[in-house]
Design a binder for these strands. Structure first.
Length: 615
RNA sequence: UGCCCGAUGGUGUAACGGUAGCACAGCAGACUCUGGAUCUGCUUGUCAUGGUUCAAAUCCAUGUCGGGCAGCCA
């Protein structure tokens, strides 16, 4: 009818073009470059090793961008690995979401750097310089993003190395560098001492190598209950670094594991499993966050004690991301989910990668943000405005412009005949001429935004007001002649005259009027649910006083029934839209044929609202 | 009060002994059929005190402040 030749928009691909501003430099990349120059490695291998006990969030995105970015910049690859050594907390749901989020984030940018492994394979026994060794190579640039599910590949799993790690533990016992300890958890704690007070040796520390080996094998065989014994490294109970005070390497847990099932009742701890997983995969640079800095001596001690035949990986630490108006603790995010304070891990208000994605943010914006915040050892807090800026910068050049009214106010163009309909031509994207134009129907009865009319406006307001003129975007100039009010005195209809000559393209179209507003034709507009999201918290540092929940923003979600231009009936999930003057919007997964649901990804910058707030 | 790490405008980040730069935010203006976008200009910084040096944000010393570490979590 009104739009005979609809110009169907298509998703604008994310080009990875965010990488335009040259190779980013940071202290870790400098170290990698130096290692390469010194010939310590022929090829760089990094890894991203989340524990599958929650969804990935924007802090992980920083780490993913760093690890894949290094692989990308130096022509190496990055292993995606589940760091799954604690069966009690982990779940297959999380390995699936993590995999999906990583693939999404690197798509079109570092797919070729992603290394996965053939399903079910474990490290292969080999010989290096006549010495026994284990190694598990990944498949770099594996089927990855294009069809992750169908291919016979999967992420790496630390739990795939349990057999090798167990063997390394026996080696340590044989070398006299580990022993089985019968202390319970509480006593282990007491014997450890305190940071400013040395620990004391466990009474089992001098157990013979033979006895420890026998006990360790029986631990594996399931002869002892949970917590009965542990395997401990024999280092130094008086070490100033508490992580060197005979750390526990293995604990007994009779628990089903999401990946290894019931195969084990003995599970290695992070410190023992992580460095060895890195070694087994041939990782060259093991990059983690600052809190692991004190673990580095232990990481090195284990690897060096084992006298392994290949080059050892090196751990480096950087500062985790902190963001204003946001919490980034998996435990606390889980709390929001469990207490139904949000709709789920992928609630568009969550700082999770899946939430951010559902909100309508593209991977480009997140990568651009990660580059912007940089990589240092300074534990600072990044202003969320930087993220918001990256989102707008990404969306502005590609978003299809549309007209839609969130809170409708009726306007009647009194000098147009009853039943009048005409098509006006609208630009799809002023930033991109190739996006073309479309037509939008204009009738006698319209809706405009309630905010775009004020009966008694403050100074500096230049939208519609009694006796005043305003331009209807793409249509023409109208003048407010008369108001209709309800019994409560609220304006329910504004009657205006349409200046025919000011039609776009018309003789007086270029007449200056201060304001231009958006509108929809009442007879043609479709109705859609629009979810308006705002920051989840009301204060910059929600967690600073330990009670983040009391700072939840009660207005972080507002749902409105909006009136939208008819072309939006065919809104496409992969396409990003800008409702002019309102913000960027994306189709939500809750949409169904005939039931459109839009998420507001982010508002436009609004200097009027800012100035008005200042008074 | 033990060990480790850190400190550059409001925020984040560069400068690798030689002009303190960039981004975000803020402010002022131009332009605009999005109070969007774009463009222009501006304000604001090397934690402190000593030392080395022709020259220090950078090297050294001391101090101050901040963060991390005492799970059989990662």
């Amino acid at each position: 009818m009104s739009d005979p030749k609809p110009n169907v928009p298509t998703a604008v691909p994310e080009t990875g073009a965010a990488e335009t501003s040259g190779i980013p430099r940071d202290f870790i990349r400098d170290l990698v470059a130096a290692d390469l120059a010194a010939g310590r490695h022929s090829r760089i291998v990094t890894r991203f090793p989340p524990e599958p006990n929650g969804y990935l969030h924007i802090g992980h995105a920083k780490s993913i961008c760093l690890n894949f970015g290094i692989a990308h910049d130096f022509g190496g690859h990055c292993n995606l690995r589940m760091d799954d050594t604690n069966p009690a907390k982990e779940d297959i749901e999380y390995v699936e979401s993590i995999t999906e989020d990583v693939l999404w984030l690197i798509r079109g940018w570092a797919d070729h750097c992603l290394a996965l492994k053939r399903k079910g394979v474990t490290p292969e026994a080999t010989q290096v310089n006549g010495r026994p060794d284990f190694h598990l190579a990944g498949i770099a640039g594996a089927p990855s993003s294009s069809n992750p599910g169908s291919a016979a590949v999967e992420p790496f799993f630390a739990s795939d190395y349990f057999e090798q790690i167990y063997l390394y533990a026996e080696q340590l016992i044989l070398k006299g560098k580990a022993y089985v300890c019968d202390l319970n958890a509480e006593d282990t704690d007491k014997y450890r001492g305190a940071p400013d007070r040395p620990g004391t040796d466990s009474p089992f520390r001098d157990r013979s190598m033979e006895e420890s080996l026998d006990l360790f094998r029986r631990m594996r065989a399931g002869e002892f209950p949970d917590g009965a014994r542990t395997l401990r490294a024999r280092i130094n109970m008086a070490a100033p670094n508490v992580w060197l005070r005979d750390p526990v390497l293995y604990r007994i847990r009779h628990a089903e594991h999401h990946h290894t099932g019931g195969a084990w009742c003995l599970y290695p701890l992070y410190d023992f499993a992580h460095c060895l997983s890195d070694y087994l995969e041939g990782i060259t640079h093991s990059i983690c966050t600052l809190e692991f800095e004190v673990h580095r001596p232990l990481y090195n001690w284990i690897l060096e004690s084992l006298e392994l035949p290949r080059a050892l990986p090196h751990q480096r630490e950087f500062a985790r991301l902190n963001l204003t108006y946001t919490i980034l603790s998996k435990r606390k995010l889980l709390q929001l989910v469990n207490e139904n304070l949000v709709s789920g891990w992928n609630d568009p208000r969550m700082p999770t990668i899946s939430g951010i994605r559902r909100r309508g943010v593209r991977a480009n914006a997140l990568r651009d943000f990660a580059r912007g915040v940089g990589v240092t050892k300074f534990d600072g807090i990044t202003d969320v405005a930087v993220l918001e800026h990256c989102i707008r910068t990404d969306l502005n050049p590609i978003a299809q412009r549309r007209l839609g009214v969130l809170r409708p106010l009726k306007v009647v163009l009194v000098n147009l005949p009853e039943g009048h309909v005409e098509d006006v031509r609208a630009v799809n994207n002023p930033e991109d001429e190739s996006a073309g134009t479309r037509t939008v129907p204009l009738g006698r009865d319209l809706f405009i935004e309630r905010d775009d009319f004020m009966e008694t406006p403050p100074k500096g307001y230049f939208r519609l007001q009694p006796g005043g003129e305003v331009r209807l975007k793409y249509a023409g100039i109208i003048r407010c002649q008369e108001l209709l009010k309800n019994a409560a005195g609220e304006v329910i209809e504004v009657r205006c005259t349409f200046d025919e000559g000011s039609r776009s393209g018309g003789p007086t179209a270029n007449r200056k009027v201060k304001g231009t507003i958006h509108w929809v034709s009442a007879a043609h507009a479709i109705t859609g649910e629009v979810r308006l999201y705002d920051r989840l918290f009301t204060v910059p540092e929600p967690d600073s006083d330990g009670d983040f929940k009391k700072h939840l923003n009660p207005h972080s979600l507002e749902v409105v029934s909006a009136r939208l231009e008819p072309s939006l009936a065919q809104a496409i999930p992969d396409v990003r839209y800008q409702l002019e003057r309102l913000g960027y919007f994306a189709v939500d997964a809750d949409s169904a044929p005939g039931r459109l649901v839009l998420n507001r990804t982010i508002t436009l910058k609004d200097s009027w609202a800012r100035d008005a707030k200042k008074g």
